[in-house]
């Protein structure tokens, strides 16, 4: 009984700390990455190489007045940032970081992640609408139509993986890929010759799902000011921001587990949770790298990409995988 009480508490504290640190320090990483790519230094002033910058930013956000503009929907306006944060935090519970580090082994964890992501979508919609600001409403509509459009290829790709493994449990999916990189789903040519393409599709979709550049239509500064966050200040904005970064972490974790073998080491050396962390941070770096490489696309091009390229490709991959599994 003792262990059953303490285990969740320890996990809760650790995951909260992990999530909080990530949410805070990914902002720093992003600014540093953007700086390096543009041959600047990024934040340098607060602490060694700006390492205390996230703390300073957090303090600033927390001490600012929580402004609720006139004419907004009082209740929904306050609920939205919380709703944006909660699903991202909750998703951490089902993610297996290693074969024995997982908050709760849920049988349908893949599905659960997507179910939680849909709450995030509601948060954006509510936040955008409650702001009573035309830019916020346009941005919310864009964000949600984009999320809906990209959820389809993403789910189709996930179904491919689920078919290969025969389970919706992230733990099982990762276990299935143990031992050398040739067992990873991305290189499983015996299941489908298109697995790398499938990985690419999934990665593109996760960039789009997290509303990041080049798919950041929702907060296209040049047209929409700050999108659905326009009317938010202080910690309301902070929560949206943290939710966004946490979504990136969750996306990277999911990509790692589904395609890159979870915590398995490429060559069978030193198995452990660090391989998982290395992989997710490489993916997160790629997120940052992509963001500072490509200019923003247009809404209709974005939707065309999903409907005309990603969905047919993932559909074909699904059929090919089904055929391969049936034949071999």
């Amino acid at each position: 009984m003792d262990t059953s009480i303490w285990r969740p508490i320890i996990y809760l504290v650790c995951f909260m700390a992990f999530a909080g640190l990530n949410a805070a320090y990914l902002g720093w990483c992003e600014r540093k990455g953007a700086g390096r790519i543009q041959r600047r230094t990024g934040p340098m002033e607060v602490g060694f190489h700006g390492l205390l910058q996230p703390l300073a930013d957090g303090l600033k956000l927390m001490t600012k007045q929580l402004l609720v503009p006139e004419g907004v929907d009082q209740i929904l306006f306050r609920i939205a940032p919380i709703l944006a944060m909660i699903p991202a935090l909750t998703s951490m519970v089902v993610i297996p970081f290693s074969d024995n580090i997982q908050g709760r082994a849920v049988e349908l964890s893949v599905l659960m992640l997507f179910a939680l992501a849909s709450i995030g979508m509601i948060a954006i919609l509510i936040g955008g609408w409650a702001s009573a600001n035309k830019y916020a409403v346009i941005s919310a509509a864009r964000a949600v139509s984009q999320n809906l459009a990209y959820e389809i290829p993403m789910l189709l790709t996930v179904i491919t993986i689920v078919m290969i493994t025969g389970s919706m449990n992230l733990q099982d999916i990762a276990m299935d890929q143990q031992g050398g990189f040739w067992h990873w789903n991305i290189f499983r040519f015996d299941k489908s010759i298109f697995m790398p393409v499938s990985f690419l599709i999934f990665f593109i979709c996760s960039v789009a799902e997290t509303n990041r550049a080049p798919f950041d239509m929702a907060e296209a500064e040049s047209e929409l000011i700050a999108g659905f966050m326009t009317e938010y200040g202080s910690m309301g904005f902070g929560l949206f921001m943290m939710g966004e970064y946490l979504n990136i972490v969750v996306g990277a974790c999911l990509t790692t587990i589904l395609f890159l073998g979870g915590w398995s080491c490429p060559f069978g050396l030193f198995p452990g949770v660090w391989w998982f962390l290395i992989k997710i941070y490489i993916l997160i770096f790629t997120f940052i790298w992509v963001r500072w490489t490509y200019p923003r696309t247009q809404v209709y091009k974005l939707l065309n990409l999903s409907w005309k390229i990603l969905i047919p490709f993932s559909m074909v991959n699904l059929l090919v995988t089904a055929a391969f599994i049936k034949v071999f």
């Binding site: 700086g35 390096r36 543009q38």
Partner: peptide, 21 residues
């Protein structure tokens, strides 16, 4: 073209900083 773009920024990433502090 996307791959070319990524390779350009990757190269820039490792070049020295040119701004002045």
């Amino acid at each position: 073209s996307l791959a070319i773009g990524l390779s350009i920024t990757a190269r820039e990433f490792f070049k020295p900083v040119i701004t002045m502090q």
